[in-house]
Design a binder for these strands. Structure first.
Lengths: 112, 112
DNA sequence: TACGAATATGACTTGACACGTATATTCTCT
DNA sequence: AGAGAATATACGTGTCAAGTCATATTCGTA
């Protein structure tokens, strides 16, 4: 979880993840798209790999990297516990709006 | 988005967020729970505040911090684009399992 | 008004990490 | 076997961020 966040909390690595969202890519491809030198891209890929966010398949001299969704699913699960919080707020807002409408119709002041 | 990730990608700050999930708390309360000195907690709260993840309400000398869900909702939206990916994989897996069952019944080999 | 509680901020130190350069490794092709 | 392509790794450097200590600030209370 924390490792996932640390891995994603770096602009270039986040960018790599976004690239891989569209499908697997070799390293050289990413070197071209990001404005980075090859060693740096390899290092970022190492970090992402250690975090379980990518997988490498060997193709001759090239390594084709693929996005692994498992850590993202984990993040999604973690967020679930917070989703309740804002849904709760939506409900409260709905209630408030409803109360305002009602009080308007009845020409009363909303209480609380 | 990136700022949110950077803010969360630090163990103590993540811990603070988890604490605030249960409701607002004054700084001193968090100092006791986390094994951190007061200045450090204040600084982490500063980072979280800059990222829009917390809000402070003044109560005499104390400041009561509250979790703001907006950045987490944003994270949720970002994840949405990846959720499709693993749901796609689930479908593929379903299809494969289905095919295996079928081929077993018909005593055939699954194709491709 | 003086004092203590609660919190924020500044100066400083240290460790981690992103980047660059150079080099090693592995594979293809001639 | 030799050359070159594609990628990974080692090492050095600068920057930034987390931690600590000391101090400032604000407020309640004796």
């Amino acid at each position: 979880m924390l490792e996932t966040l640390k891995a994603l909390a770096e602009p270039n690595r986040l960018h790599i993840v976004e690239l891989l969202r569209d499908g697997p890519r070799p390293v050289g491809d990413m070197v071209q798209r990001l404005h980075l030198r090859q060693p740096q891209v390899s290092k970022h890929l190492r970090v992402l790999s250690d975090a379980g966010l990518v997988d490498a398949r060997v193709d001759a001299q090239r390594r084709i990297y693929t996005l692994r969704t498992a850590p993202l699913q984990q993040l999604d699960v973690w967020l679930e516990r917070y989703r309740q919080l804002w849904e709760q707020n939506f409900k409260r807002l709905d209630a408030l709006l409803d109360e305002m409408k009602t009080s308007h119709r009845k020409s009363k002041h909303p209480k609380r």
